[in-house]
Amino acid sequence: MAGKGDQFSGLTVALVTPFKDGEIDEQALRDLVDYQVEQGADCVSPVGTTGESPTLSHGEHEQVIAIVCEQAAGRVKVVAGTGSNSTREAIRLTKFAKSVGADGSLQVAPYYNKPTQEGFYQHFKAIAEEVDIPIILYNIPGRSAKNIEPETIIRLAEIPNIVAIKESTGSMDQASHILAGCDLTLLSGDDSLTLPLLSLGGSGVVSVVGNIVPQDVKALLNAFAAGNLEEARKRHYKLFPLCRDMLSLATNPIPVKTAMKLLGRDLGEVRLPMTPLTEEQTASLSKTLTTYGLL
């Protein structure tokens, strides 16, 4: 289905944030961007959930966005995570992202403070009015503690520069309600639900597993777009165990960072309160990577 944010359709990779000796590893981050350009990603999204945004200082948050925008240099779109549970802070970060060349802003539902539906509406409306940049809403009640209801999302879709939604509720009914009620471009926020959401009219995915196998995620999207459902299903079932491990073994991004290390792409530790996988979990992940054909 055509939507108002179709420039963000396809594969967006939710980038991990590399660390070295407790600091941001700038060279590794630049290499990550180059890798995604080479692999054919349509877009990269720094400092989202996968980028460990909750443990980055405001300065580091800006540093990562600036580095990714500079390294992308127009070769791939950049949708920067600039959400906050403080509307003022979200506006400040979004202004910064625009100033360094981000193509769009990923705006997570304000977490912890659990706004009313009117609060959600006024929060996103204020950001959209303050910063003239395409905005992708990000609804993930499992982390933010409250759902942005479909009626609120449909209402927000009337604001010109709110163009898309990253849908991470896991609810096909919620996705159907949104797609039936407005022209927002809908992107899967769960790798394992990409194909089901495409079948409803979704336009792509903001992918964690794309850090590891971007070409395979892209191949699934391309197969579906070409009308080759059998190929798309085959791709889905190959990817499924890997997608499952990224979320079920431990909290994202612990498994994806571990997987990249196992594959010889060590991007450093996860920051507390995130902790490494246990030996047993690492062995399980290693088995999945081997079965997939990566190890």
Score class of each variant (00 low, 15 high):
residue 14 A to L: 08
residue 16 V to D: 09
residue 17 T to K: 10
residue 17 T to Q: 03
residue 21 D to H: 07
residue 23 E to F: 02
residue 25 D to H: 10
residue 29 L to A: 08
residue 29 L to Y: 05
residue 30 R to L: 06
residue 30 R to S: 13
residue 30 R to G: 00
residue 31 D to E: 15
residue 34 D to Q: 15
residue 34 D to N: 14
residue 38 E to R: 14
residue 40 G to T: 03
residue 41 A to W: 03
residue 48 G to Y: 02
residue 51 G to M: 05
residue 59 G to L: 10
residue 60 E to V: 12
residue 64 V to Q: 08
residue 65 I to H: 13
residue 68 V to A: 07
residue 70 E to N: 14
residue 77 K to G: 05
residue 81 G to L: 06
residue 96 F to V: 09
residue 102 A to R: 10
residue 109 A to R: 04
residue 114 K to H: 11
residue 119 G to V: 04
residue 121 Y to H: 02
residue 122 Q to I: 03
residue 127 I to F: 10
residue 130 E to N: 11
residue 135 I to P: 11
residue 151 E to W: 04
residue 154 I to F: 09
residue 155 R to Q: 06
residue 157 A to Y: 00
residue 157 A to Q: 03
residue 162 I to T: 07
residue 164 A to R: 05
residue 166 K to G: 06
residue 171 S to L: 12
residue 174 Q to P: 03
residue 183 D to R: 09
residue 186 L to I: 05
residue 188 S to H: 00
residue 189 G to Q: 01
residue 202 G to I: 14
residue 204 G to M: 12
residue 204 G to R: 02
residue 207 S to A: 13
residue 208 V to W: 01
residue 217 V to K: 10
residue 220 L to Y: 03
residue 224 F to V: 06
residue 225 A to I: 00
residue 231 E to I: 04
residue 233 R to H: 11
residue 242 L to D: 02
residue 244 R to Y: 11
residue 245 D to V: 01
residue 253 P to W: 09
residue 254 I to K: 08
residue 256 V to P: 07
residue 257 K to A: 02
residue 265 R to T: 06
residue 268 G to M: 06
residue 268 G to R: 00
residue 269 E to V: 09
residue 272 L to A: 01
residue 273 P to N: 01
residue 275 T to N: 07
residue 290 T to I: 15
